[in-house]
Design a protein around this nucleic acid. Structure first.
Ligand SMILES: [Mn+2]
Ligand SMILES: [Mn+2]
Ligand SMILES: [Zn+2]
Ligand SMILES: [Zn+2]
Lengths: 141, 141
DNA sequence: AATTATTTGAGACTCATTCACAATAAGGGC
DNA sequence: GCCCTTATTGTGAATGAGTCTCAAATAATT
């Protein structure tokens, strides 16, 4: 069994949820693509590949995946949220072009550390964060 | 004429928009309150004070204010966006309790600088940013 | 196989926000 | 101030992402 399938089984078990074809299909579609896509993108791709899963099930499954750190939810400020899997990739944040919508990823460990310090200072138990830079990308300038 | 009224007049003029009672009332309601409120909070407060401005106008006015750096839009992850004026206060970001919804502000110049460096590195023209920490606040732990 | 509990799909629903359009009000010149 | 042009407003309808309901399907348990 593939590593990713294992992972899904584990998480579903931990959550007391059943392993179903639909959940596997959704996870598989997400984990085998490295783009930032919205629910409809994912739903339509599944459908195009002849895999019939309802939109509601895509939403429901993604909720579970996000809750369990397998998928990152990305609010790009306009339109529906986007999603990307978190397998085999270090944590990163995003720069979003307000002109063309391009999403670029960035990593900055110093910022991450400072962020932890801030949380500690306020005795705030940090669960997740959003750090997004909005502006004009190189190509759009 | 008050400083804030001046400011509004300037911005509206710059945008080629007219100075109206409604726009003044909305700006006045926002600038004289230091909380993080959603459109409906603001709308209802105006209404409670006998100032009849339609919801659509509140939305429209806030758009202008946000676009012109007089108001910050705050997406708290659940429910409607919140807003706060940006007068007489240094830039800050937010920590949001996912339990009770409390919003705490924080300032970190080092993070701001690193952020600028990242943008420069990618030749990305930074216009605005969101940096929000989600977690459990001191009181909710 | 029968029983019980969960999941699914379909579509209705919610709720924040936007839109269309007729009525109203600003601003600039006279 | 008055007229004219154009922007703004209020109303309520429309939109659209996301959630919910519930009956049918599927899975687990006996
Ligand atoms: Mn990414
Ligand atoms: Mn604030
Ligand atoms: Zn761009
Ligand atoms: Zn709290």
């Amino acid at each position: 069994m593939s590593k990713n399938k294992e992972k899904l089984k584990m998480v579903l078990h931990k959550e007391g949820l059943r392993f179903t074809n639909q959940r596997e299909a959704v996870w598989n579609e997400i984990v085998t693509c490295d783009e930032h896509r919205n629910v409809d993108d994912i739903y339509m791709t599944l459908r195009k590949n002849g895999i019939l899963v309802s939109r509601a099930t895509v939403y429901r499954t993604i909720d579970v995946l996000v809750k369990n750190n397998m998928v990152r939810k990305l609010d790009v400020g306009v339109g529906p949220s986007k999603f990307e899997h978190k397998m085999n990739a270090p944590h990163h944040d995003h720069m979003i072009c307000i002109q063309c919508g391009r999403i670029e990823e960035f990593v900055d460990d110093q910022i991450e550390n400072l962020q932890d310090s801030v949380a500690k200072e306020y005795e705030f138990k940090l669960v997740r964060h959003i750090h997004q830079l909005f502006g004009i990308c190189k190509d759009c300038q």
